[in-house]
Design a protein around this nucleic acid. Structure first.
Lengths: 168, 168
DNA sequence: ATTAATTTTCAATATTTTTTGAAAATTCAG
DNA sequence: CTGAATTTTCAAAAAATATTGAAAATTAAT
């Protein structure tokens, strides 16, 4: 297979995967393009390569920066902004995990906290089921939480070398 | 807070969370409703409670069944179908993780396999970067894969008791 | 200070996804 | 078998989301 076809297929698959997981397809494609680019890349290049408008590219580049997945660099003597992706997939994945937890999961758990202690008969079977469900989710969340913290703190090498053996 | 308000808020939050993660909002809401319901529930009840059309409820119930998150039960003497959710959140989460891996991640990794061994000069910097990126993702994927298998195999109790301590 | 290059914004437009609702199919009691 | 109850299907409509493109804002060289 030729490089151009392979790149195209990777970008397209990465975009499809992203959109299945609630990440804007275009953002994922731009991320993919930067991941396979050997050097800094500017907005015009992305526009051409992925057939997108300037506005769209601009917005998604900013989202990618706010996710911490890419960064802006300048090339001396060039007025244009250039962008480059974090190439270490482990770091990128941890970055995404951390962010999504903070942005989406934490607010949910905060709401769950407000749903404990109903001012109703705790003997009622519906009240009971509700309380049990909320408590179950909270317990699960706190477990997952601690696990994620642990994984994030651990560096990849320790994780690969020692921890992963536990899951053989 | 009153039960009805709390239920409503839980259902709405669960739906919003689902849609952020690529899960149909309505499906997540129906799932939430079943999670907080103390007994089997039929389509008409869901239609009324969540203000949805019969077709929509029917389709999403079937999706939930295909995800393995709910099951159909019958009530003797009643022609209607009834539904009940798996209430163990640990089990539900593992079910979702397993399914999404199989349905969405595995196909992606299969594609990545096809993108190795380009018929081009491996010394070229773009070819090099492409190969490195693909290889990096594959390595990460296989680590995550083994970890997920391990977690799925472990039952919740062992996980909570022994493994989680590693992440203190 | 001027102006050309570049980036940003955002209302309008286009696309994708979800929902509806009624017809068709199925089920099952009598 | 009949027909009423229930479920399923799916084309059309609605809603949600993403994209465009051109005007406004910003930047920086002279």
């Amino acid at each position: 297979m030729k490089l151009q076809d392979a790149r195209q297929q990777f970008i397209s698959s990465w975009g499809a995967l992203g959109s299945q997981w609630g990440i804007n397809r275009t953002m994922a494609q731009i991320h993919a393009l930067l991941l396979v680019s050997s050097g800094p890349v500017n907005a015009d290049y992305i526009m051409t390569e992925l057939n997108l408008s300037r506005g769209n590219v601009n917005m998604n580049l900013h989202d990618l920066i706010s996710w911490g997945l890419i960064e802006k660099t300048i090339i001396p003597g060039d007025r244009k902004d250039y962008f480059i992706a974090e190439k270490d997939i482990w770091k990128a994945a941890m970055t995404i995990a951390k962010q999504r937890k903070q942005r989406e999961l934490d607010p949910m758990f905060k709401i769950l906290d407000q749903l404990t202690d109903l001012e109703e008969d705790p003997k009622d079977k519906d009240v009971k089921q509700f309380n049990e469900t909320i408590a179950g989710i909270q317990k699960f969340a706190s477990q997952a939480d601690r696990m994620l913290d642990g994984i994030i703190k651990a560096d990849q090498h320790w994780f690969t070398g020692s921890l992963l053996k536990l899951f053989k």
